[in-house]
Design a protein around this nucleic acid. Structure first.
Lengths: 187, 187
DNA sequence: GTCTATAGCTTGATAGAC
DNA sequence: GTCTATCAAGCTATAGAC
């Protein structure tokens, strides 16, 4: 047992980037090999299930990252404004200021793999639920909160697509800046 | 010269669906062959440039469809409310009530093809410009109109992604219903 | 744990019969 | 204009040396 050239988390981050840049199908093992510096055969040692297992692992790591940086922040004891600021900072970093797509977008096309599709769906549901709790804290009624949460996420997904097509991240940056406004209750 | 098994427009519609369901890379010639009923070699007779030419032709056909059903409607002499209703009906049909993705989304991932990326960008810019004119008609100031137009399109793109992931088109249907509200000026 | 080498299949694309 | 047959290159995945 030689020592790994890269720990699992760093490896997954490299693979994540390939999936987010190219989508599931176009993310070939050759591209992943180049991005990680590991030969294709080595990737199969780390992920015996092959490309599907890589995708599932990446989706899971991203979910855990959101759990730490979004969901748990929302359920923490911080002040609401501090939560909001922390989440905005995380999202800006995670989406590289709008230049890197969302896995929910790039991996939800014709994947055929049921567990991946279910995982993406459950991640999005957890995200909506967490934003709902934050919206409630920001003065929304329970019913209003879910609508605002969905609206904020829809806005981010939409601006990510538009920013990618226009090659201009202005819309995404505005989406993050507006997050507080988007989640706040009507007065 | 035998008579074509399918006219060019119907052929392009079949191919369009494959690109919108699977994205550019995953849209293999085998899938396109199955969707159109033409063998791969026959597709090369219709599109000598191969897959890239198919993608460009599809993008162009969709642009022309938007030109007819959205841009020209906006610039017509109809009443504003009638324009809005016609556009809503078209968009519902075009996106199959939220069950079929947008080409701007599925074809903008790592295409490498410069003319395709430029075409998608220009199509989106034309769409934003047209919606801006409609927003102006709906009582927006020039500056406000562009923001509302962008917001309405962002909302559609976002709800399309969310509807795809959740396998629930409720959000997209709401986006279309809200189109008037989204484009109307603040009173 | 990583590598080289390779199997077996699918891809995009071409040649030529009808 | 569509087809069958075929090509070279790419793909995912595996075997086995170190």
């Amino acid at each position: 047992m030689r020592t790994p050239a890269m720990d699992n988390q760093a490896l997954l981050s490299c693979i994540e980037k390939v999936f987010r840049l190219h989508g599931y199908e176009a993310a070939s093992l050759t591209l992943i090999s180049q991005a990680t510096g590991l030969e294709r055969a080595s990737l199969y040692h780390r992920f015996p299930g092959g490309k599907v297992e890589m995708a599932l692992s990446v989706a899971n790591q991203v979910f855990l990252s959101f759990q730490t940086n979004v969901f748990e922040v929302i359920d923490s004891a911080q002040k609401t404004e501090e939560k909001l600021a922390a989440i905005q900072a995380f999202l800006l970093r995670f989406y590289e200021e709008g230049r890197l797509s969302c896995l929910l977008d790039t991996m939800s096309l014709s994947t055929q793999d049921q567990s991946l599709n279910t995982g993406l769906k459950q991640s999005l549901e957890a995200w909506i639920a967490a934003f709902s709790r934050l919206a409630t804290e920001l003065g929304c009624s329970p019913k209003e909160a879910e609508a605002k949460a969905l609206g904020a996420i829809v806005n981010m997904q939409g601006t990510l697509v538009v920013s990618r097509v226009l090659k201009d991240n202005t819309a995404f940056l505005a989406s993050i800046s507006d997050l507080g406004r988007l989640l706040r209750g009507a007065h």
